[in-house]
C-alpha cells in the first residue's frame, strides 16, 4: 500500500512538471484554485470551498489530480482524487477513499462523485463573496460493517452551499481567505460508516475555514467541520485542523495539517497528521 502510494506521488510530481505550461496558462491568481479536499472537491483539507479547482479562467478548462493521507492514532485515510473545471463555472470531481482500520483491523472504502457550480461572484474581486452550490454522491463499497453497526444505506448524497472571500490587504496587511459551507448530509464519518442510522437521518452541518497568506506562496489556517452523529454504537465528533499550505507555482499545491478528528468508531481522541499533494493542469 505504501509503495503504491509512493509510486502515485512520484507519478503526480512527474506529470506536474510536464503540465507546467498548461497550468501556467490558467488565468486565475496563484493559490485561488486551493487544494483538493478529502472528498475530492476543491477546498481546504476537510471542507469544500466555493472556489473551483485548477486555474482555469472563464474561457478555459483545467484539471487537477491529488493524493491525500490522514494518519491518526488508530486509523489511516488514503484518498486519490481528480477533477475537471469547465470555464471556472462547473467543477466535476471523483475521489476514492480507503479507510484503514489499523487497530481494529480491516478497511472501509467509498467512491465520491462531486459536482460544484459557481453561482455568483469572484473570490478576489467585488464586495460580495464567491457563491457556489455542490453535491457529493457517495457510494460505500464495504457496507457489511456499516450495516452491522446500524447504518441504513450504502449510498447517500450531500448537498452544500459555500461562500468564499479573499481580502487582499487584510489584517496585518496580509491576504486573508475565509470560506463558509452549509452541508445537508446523512453520511456517517464521511460515508465510510454508511448513511443514516438509528439516532437521526438528514442534518444540516456548518463548516468553516480561515487562512492567512504570509506571502504569496505560504498560507496558514484553521478549519472546522461540524459532524452528525447518527449511530448510537459510536459517537461522532466535529473535526478540526490547523494547516500550512504551500503553492510554489500553478502546477503544485502541498498542504500539511495537524488534525483532531475526535472519536471514531468508539476510539476517542484521534489526533494526527494530514498531507495532501495536488497537481494542476
Amino acid at each position: 500500500m505504501v509503495s503504491k502510494s509512493l509510486k502515485l506521488v512520484a507519478a503526480v510530481i512527474l506529470s506536474c512538471t510536464s503540465a507546467t505550461v498548461a497550468a501556467n496558462d490558467g488565468t486565475r491568481l496563484l493559490a485561488t484554485g486551493g487544494a483538493t479536499s478529502i472528498e475530492g472537491s476543491a477546498g481546504g483539507g476537510i471542507v469544500p470551498w466555493a472556489t473551483l479547482s485548477s486555474y482555469a479562467g472563464e474561457s478555459q478548462v483545467g484539471a487537477t489530480a491529488a493524493l491525500s493521507e490522514v494518519s491518526v492514532d488508530d486509523f489511516r485515510l488514503s484518498v486519490a482524487a481528480a477533477s475537471v473545471n469547465f470555464y471556472n463555472r462547473l467543477e466535476v470531481s471523483y475521489a476514492k477513499q480507503t479507510f484503514d482500520l489499523s487497530t481494529i483491523g480491516g478497511e472501509l472504502k467509498q467512491n465520491i462523485v462531486g459536482v460544484k457550480a459557481r453561482l455568483y461572484g469572484d473570490l478576489v474581486y467585488g464586495d460580495w463573496p464567491q457563491l457556489s452550490a455542490g453535491i457529493q454522491h457517495k457510494t460505500n463499497q464495504t457496507f457489511a460493517l456499516p450495516n452491522a453497526v446500524g447504518a441504513k444505506d450504502d449510498s447517500g448524497t450531500d448537498y452544500y452551499i459555500s461562500a468564499a472571500k479573499a481580502w487582499l490587504d487584510g489584517f496585518g496587511h496580509r491576504t486573508w481567505v475565509a470560506n463558509l459551507t452549509v452541508r445537508n448530509t446523512k453520511a456517517n464519518q464521511l460515508g465510510l460508516l454508511g448513511f443514516g442510522g438509528d439516532q437521526q437521518d438528514r442534518r444540516w452541518q456548518l463548516e468553516g475555514s480561515v487562512a492567512a497568506f504570509i506571502n504569496r506562496y505560504w498560507a496558514v489556517g484553521v478549519e472546522y467541520r461540524q459532524k452528525p452523529s447518527n449511530l448510537s454504537f459510536a459517537r461522532e465528533d466535529d473535526w478540526k485542523d490547523l494547516f500550512v499550505g504551500y503553492f510554489p507555482n500553478r502546477s503544485l499545491a502541498i498542504v500539511a495539517a495537524y488534525t483532531d478528528l475526535g472519536s471514531i468508531a468508539g476510539l476517542d481522541n484521534q489526533h494526527g497528521w494530514y498531507l495532501s499533494l495536488q497537481a494542476s493542469f
Binding site: 478576489v124 474581486y125 467585488g126 481580502w167 487582499l168 490587504d169 487584510g170 496585518g172 496587511h173 496580509r174 491576504t175 504570509i214 506571502n215 504569496r216
Partner: peptide
C-alpha cells in the same frame, strides 16, 4: 515587501469592475 504589495493590490483590485 508583501505588506506593501498587498496595499497596492487591494486598491487596484477595487478598479476591477
Amino acid at each position: 515587501p508583501t505588506s506593501a504589495q498587498n496595499q497596492l493590490l487591494a486598491k487596484l483590485a477595487a478598479m476591477h469592475n
